[in-house]
Design a protein around this nucleic acid. Structure first.
Length: 169
DNA sequence: CGTATTTGACCGGCGC
DNA sequence: GCGCCGGTCAAATACG
């Protein structure tokens, strides 16, 4: 497929050649995520705000065929890729994700994981991929915008510390 | 028992 | 028209 949309930009974490501080990045990276997130949260206004149709293939026939919707859909779906230094691929950003698929990627020995937000009406998708040539680097791609608040308190440092301890043991 | 994850099959698009 | 490829569904299973 052609993904020349250019929508995806890779955020290369420069500098960290030391690698040492990479421990338990599970939640550490979360901080970075939040920062970046804030930048994109602005999203377009009400017009395209509802990305509900994103991947909304709920229209199905009994034969298992999917009804194709109008090709002239101008709703653009936001897509953002993040590159994070982390040993674990489970980056918890505060939302609840349900895994719905796993596929092997060419040029990569690691599979790619597909997740979806479990919140009803929230069709936000995300996929996590690992770089085979640079272990410890995980690429997370978010697609869509959450239309509901986070259920987890991510601003509580004590919480974060606790999680870190769990992951680092 | 309810919910999340696993895993193979399936689907639509594109290239040849 | 057929086969590859990336993405998704859905049944079975695992897990609390």
């Amino acid at each position: 497929m052609n993904d020349p949309s250019g929508e995806i930009f890779s955020y290369s974490s420069s500098s960290p050649s030391s690698s040492s501080a990479a421990i338990t990045s599970s939640y550490l990276s979360l901080n970075m995520l939040n920062n970046n997130h804030a930048s994109y949260e602005q999203m377009a206004g009400p017009g395209s705000g509802s990305v509900t149709d994103g991947g909304g293939d709920e229209l199905k026939t009994v034969s298992g065929k999917v009804n194709v919707r109008k090709p002239e859909k101008k709703v653009k779906k936001p897509k953002h890729a993040f590159q994070t230094r982390s040993q674990v691929d489970i980056l918890d950003d505060g939302y609840r994700w349900r895994k719905y698929g796993q596929k092997a990627v060419k040029n990569n020995k690691f599979p790619r994981n597909y997740y979806r937000c479990t919140h009803q009406g929230c069709n936000v998708k995300k996929q996590v991929q690992r770089l085979s040539h640079d272990d410890g680097v995980v690429v997370t791609t978010y697609e869509g915008v959450h239309s509901h608040p986070i259920e987890k308190s991510t601003d509580n440092f004590e919480n974060i510390l606790t999680q870190m301890q769990i992951y680092s043991r």
